[in-house]
Design a protein around this nucleic acid. Structure first.
Length: 746
DNA sequence: TGGGAGTGCTTTTTT
DNA sequence: AGCACTCCCA
């Protein structure tokens, strides 16, 4: 009979079968981390050391949680539904739904995503008449979130100057507003749960007794509050297994504390630290490069990846003249890879910052190579979806002012800025009593504004009545119909996609219901709290789901496409072929990071993550000239390139470039000498010109219907975008788009 | 109310 | 250079 433990290497096996004690697993990139984590859970359950009920497994992303659940149900014949495996936020949501009373929340509390939070802050500033130039909403949002993530309520934030004192006041006002509206932001989910467990002894004791084994994925990404949260839950003698890689900590900028790993080891007196250093992903040269890079960081917990796969190919390095030329080289290289049979989806194009994708996309597009860019708008973040959800939110909780303000006049129903201002005024707190919600104020608003707002209130009431007793998907249909959203987008000329997305929202509701299988199990904890048993509300659950899991970035283009993404979003993924472009000082490492404390080390970890994404072949490239923020910049090559031992690399371009060159002498067809003047138009190469359509090249004599004879001086772009600069002598020098101008060889 | 012009920002991102 | 956001005018 096959065992769970088959095919584990000794370290993995040791980790999986550790006795019931705390453990820290230092899992290098590609060392089988997820496998260890899931097998550990399966093994604990299979050997009867714990029931599915007694396990708590925490991840950072929904994707990771889903994968864990999927693998687990493949390993064990158990129903994983109902197991406490999920993201920090998802699990907190679950706890707060079960104990909403003790957490002082309405039963149908809503979750604000970042965009909702920002608009809530803007609305607050307006209501309080606060200058948003002096207190930019974005800064306030960061301030508030950072405070919460440090576990600090407004009264606990230290403020030594007037500015901070004012910000703290705003923080407090924001909290009041959220509480009044019955909404929580992401950080609040964590903090509120933490406080609930800390404050209410029976609930804490219940969960402490329940969870015997706590497992944490990507532990290096935990922030202060998450770590405290874990300590609290583990306080009843649970065993904590933390899995992480300090070398892959790349989220310090959003509050992640690598130091938690050291603290964990010390505070839990962890008897078992296991290093997973055998890498199953990459060839030796790639690993050696990664090791050589990360070695330059100080204070590591220490780890050295190795493989038995053999050293493989050298790492290819390319120096381009310009960003455009770099992109063209990448595309050319991809083309030949694809020609040789490489699947496009196995090729990843990584860059440090999103702005770099444009040039690459352009080159790919021109070359007619299918590609997919990660990042950008996700399904539940689209405006039409957020509008529809806002209507649903108002059904669930009319006091949700964010939802109210979002759709009170969308589709337009004659409620302009003035009416809204009156409404805000009416909702403003009066002496002795707190502020009212916009909804409550709307019900009592008189005058002309009162009339038009009354129409909206009536609409929501009608919608709520219409939804009575309906299934979730039917409710969604009612909402998008009665609200007028469908009618609105039907008249809009670009509305087709939006209508399709609204349909898709109905589908999402159908799927949600079938996956969750309402009515689900009892919310846990009733025994503790004596709360009346309330079946979970499908609408509230669905809305929480929409906030917590924003969905796919793009409609499932599962086509075979080249993958473009930032290094950050590549974390956790792997590809046969990886290109890391823009390896230039100022870009990667990013210039802003140089000034930050420990910034450079984080950049280096980022580089480490990037390099370890590759299985078989790694390309590194940089450009001498790059357009950034509308200006041409001349960057030096990245220090990270220098950190890779020379013998691991193969330069596709000469490593040392002569200062002045009249003609390229080293036969590389991609290479052209530097332009004579920095201000000269972007570098063109003969290669590009030949590819620019029409087969023109620099120096060629051409004929133009109006300007007569001329000679091509330079060219840029390619495909339909190709332009050439032609010197027509007396007629002057002109730029001509080849797709427009009729040029013939003369 | 909606579109067009003007303004300012620009590392990385999940929940 | 682009893009998002604001403001002002018809």
């Amino acid at each position: 009979m096959p065992s769970l433990l088959d095919n584990l290497n000794p370290e993995q096996l040791a980790a999986v079968t550790l006795p019931a004690q705390h453990a820290l697993i230092l899992a290098g990139a590609g060392s089988g981390k997820t496998r260890v984590l899931t097998t550990r859970i399966a093994w604990l359950i299979q050997t009867g050391q714990v029931g599915p009920h007694g396990v708590l497994a925490v991840t950072f992303t929904n994707k990771a949680a889903k994968e864990m659940l999927a693998r687990l149900s493949a390993m064990l014949p158990i129903n994983t539904r109902g197991m406490w495996i999920g993201t920090f936020h998802g699990l907190c949501n679950r706890l707060l739904r079960a104990h909403w009373r003790e957490a002082a929340l309405p039963q149908t509390f809503q979750i604000l995503d970042s965009a909702d939070q920002l608009s809530a802050i803007k609305r607050l500033l307006k209501a309080l008449n606060i200058d948003d130039e002096k207190y930019p909403p974005r800064d306030l949002m960061h301030f508030i979130n950072a405070s919460k993530e440090a576990g600090l309520r407004a009264h606990a934030v230290e403020a030594w100057d007037d500015f901070t004192r004012r910000r703290v006041e705003i923080y407090q006002e924001y909290e009041n507003q959220c509480q009044r509206e019955g909404v929580v932001d992401f950080a609040e989910l964590l903090l509120r749960t933490y406080e609930l467990l800390e404050r209410v002894e029976p609930i804490r004791a219940h969960y402490q007794a329940r969870f015997r084994h706590i497992l944490v994925d990507e532990f290096q990404d935990t922030n202060v509050l998450q770590y405290r949260w874990l300590k609290l839950l583990a306080g009843g003698g649970a065993c904590v297994m933390a899995v992480g890689d300090d070398d892959q900590s790349i989220y310090a900028f959003r509050g992640a504390e690598v130091g938690n790993m050291r603290d964990f080891e010390r505070e839990f007196r962890v008897p078992n630290v296991i290093r997973l250093e055998q890498n199953y992903r990459s060839h030796g040269n790639i690993l050696d490069a990664a090791n050589a890079i990360i070695k330059n960081n100080a204070g590591r917990l220490g780890k050295n990846l190795w493989t038995d796969r053999g050293s493989g190919e050298p790492i290819r390095v390319y120096e381009a003249m310009s960003d455009t030329e770099e992109a063209r080289w990448v595309v050319e290289e991809i083309r030949s890879l694809v020609m040789e049979g490489t699947a496009r989806r196995e090729i990843a194009l990584l860059y440090r910052s999103n702005a770099q994708s444009r040039v690459l996309e352009h080159a790919l597009f021109t070359a007619n190579l299918p590609y997919r860019v990660y990042g950008g708008l996700r399904f539940f973040e689209r405006q039409e979806i957020k509008h529809a959800l806002a209507y649903l939110r108002l059904i669930a909780n009319p006091d949700d002012d964010t939802a109210f303000a979002r759709v009170v006049n969308f589709p337009t129903r004659g409620i302009g800025a003035r009416s809204l201002e009156q409404l805000q005024d009416a909702a403003r707190p009066v002496m002795g009593e707190g502020a009212a919600s916009l909804w409550a104020a709307a019900k009592n608003l008189g005058g002309k504004a009162g009339q038009s707002v009354g129409v909206f209130v009536a609409l929501i009431d009608r919608l709520r009545a219409a939804c009575e007793g309906l299934s979730l998907p039917e409710m969604v249909e009612q909402a998008i119909e009665l609200s007028g959203l469908v009618a609105h987008y039907k008249t809009e000329k670009e509305g087709q996609d939006r209508l399709a997305n609204l349909d898709e929202l109905v589908n999402a509701a159908v799927n949600f219901v079938s996956e969750e299988g309402f009515p689900v199990e009892q919310p846990p904890g009733d025994a503790v709290t004596d709360a009346p048993v309330v079946p979970p509300d499908p609408l509230a659950s669905f809305l929480a789901h929409a906030s917590l899991e924003a969905g796919e970035h793009q409609a499932g283009d599962s086509d075979d496409a080249v993958q473009l993404m930032t290094v950050h979003s590549a974390k956790g993924l792997e590809f046969n072929i990886v290109f890391i472009s823009g390896l230039e000082e100022g870009l990667f490492p990013h210039e802003n990071s140089i000034l930050e404390d420990k910034g450079l080390e984080e950049e280096r970890r980022l580089m480490y993550v990037a390099v370890t994404r590759a299985r078989e072949r790694l390309y590194l490239s940089f450009a001498q000239t790059r357009m950034l923020h509308g200006q041409t910049r001349y960057n030096m090559k990245s220090r990270f390139l220098e950190e890779i031992p020379e013998l691991l690399t193969k330069w596709l371009t000469p490593k040392v470039r002569p200062q002045r060159v009249a003609e390229p002498t080293w036969g590389n067809r991609y290479y052209e000498p530097k332009p004579a003047y920095p201000s000269a138009p972007p570098v063109r190469t003969r290669y590009e010109t030949e590819n620019s359509g029409g087969g023109f090249r620099i120096g060629q004599q051409v004929q133009h219907a109006k300007f007569g004879q001329g000679v091509i001086v330079s060219a840029e772009g390619s495909g339909s975008d190709a332009r050439v600069q032609v010197n027509f002598g007396r007629e002057g020098i002109k730029w001509l788009a080849l797709s427009v101008a009729k040029l013939t060889p003369a």
